[in-house]
Design a protein around this nucleic acid. Sequence first.
DNA 1: TCCGGCGTTTTGTGATCACAAATCCATGTG
DNA 2: CACATGGATTTGTGATCACAAAACGCCGGA
Lengths: 222, 222
Amino acid sequence: MTSAPLAEAAAGTSPEPAHERVHRALRRRILHGELAPGQPVTLRGLAAALGVSMTPAREAVRRLTAERALETTPTGRVLAPVKSAEALAELLAARALLEPELAARAAARADAALVARLRSHDDAVEAALAAGDAATYVRANTAFHATLYAAARAPALMALVESVWLQLNPSMRILNGRAGTAGLADHHEQAMAACARRDGTAAAAAVLADIRQAEALIAGGG
Amino acid sequence: MTSAPLAEAAAGTSPEPAHERVHRALRRRILHGELAPGQPVTLRGLAAALGVSMTPAREAVRRLTAERALETTPTGRVLAPVKSAEALAELLAARALLEPELAARAAARADAALVARLRSHDDAVEAALAAGDAATYVRANTAFHATLYAAARAPALMALVESVWLQLNPSMRILNGRAGTAGLADHHEQAMAACARRDGTAAAAAVLADIRQAEALIAGGG
DNA sequence: TCCGGCGTTTTGTGATCACAAATCCATGTG
DNA sequence: CACATGGATTTGTGATCACAAAACGCCGGA
């Protein structure tokens, strides 16, 4: 197997370790909500799927479990965690504490290019919402927030928020699947307007409202 | 050569994996500030120090790097991260966002036993401060906060805060080494009083003041 | 005294293997 | 028809190995 060491060796510029590639691939799947809660992740299966041996697969899984994106049972089995309603509420509380700060910092550094990228992601959000495509919605919504916060240039805070998303997104997919109502993008609009004005306070308020809306959705959906 | 599989096998109740033991041991060292920033951590060295092979050592290191407690250079070397002043400020900002919430939740659930445990840890803090023992101070101070927040029963928030501590503590040791001033425990006193009264707001305020003091310390120390 | 080059040693990486435990599934029994 | 029980299979774990690259130290020259 893995008879082909991949053509990227020809590029020469990026001798990326295999375990990092596995980590990013699995992380992306989780962040996009493609991994259902409770779904097991086997080392051999993951390794075979990406054409590597068990060792880098194990390293990638360990990293994700450290980020709480995966869960290890007492017997060593690894699976996407099933979050209780209380756990989801706690994660949303964490978002409510962290993300407004990130939004405020981002808005203070915003420029036209950022607003344009945000607009592009928000269009995708609304399109997915209209089409009832839950998976695409989660991906686009995450991309919107990630793009906004990246402008804050606060890597440590960003890492904390991403850890929360990794825990939240698998469950969000199911949640949004049954709550495909409209009008969810209003706060995105406010956030973009705040960025255009470099208004950090308004951006923080918009993001907080966005999160509060998600909280209400969970509380309502039970 | 790990000739002795440890007597814990006799207990029978906990067949704990080796990689978890390595992870906890290394994590404890980092949390206690025993690992100086920039100090390298070699896989073989770590494995030999704990009597295991490279594989579990590698897994433990991966977990810690995922928690941002360790850093990987482009060449694969692993070392305790050297934080810039901006990075430290960002981490303290994260503490200021998260810990007051945890303190408020903890105070609402506080009982006499908790206050007693906090008192015990705070005594150790003041003793270490008086003795100028930086390492013990970091350990006792962390134990005080950890004990308080554990009462909040918010595991996800707690995990985020612990990740911040892991990044902060190695640098804190150096910082406190040169700033051994007195009167630092006042906010701990206020926090314990707030817990005794079940006053969440006051507990949050006390913790926030504690963190602001640390921020001022860093800003002053430059 | 400082600096560049070269060989040795150290180090991370990924694959493979043996082993024990857990899981799964089918079968038989009440 | 529900449920326990048996064995076959899957799975995580930890050790070991070969390999390439990086780090280190030494030495000679300017």
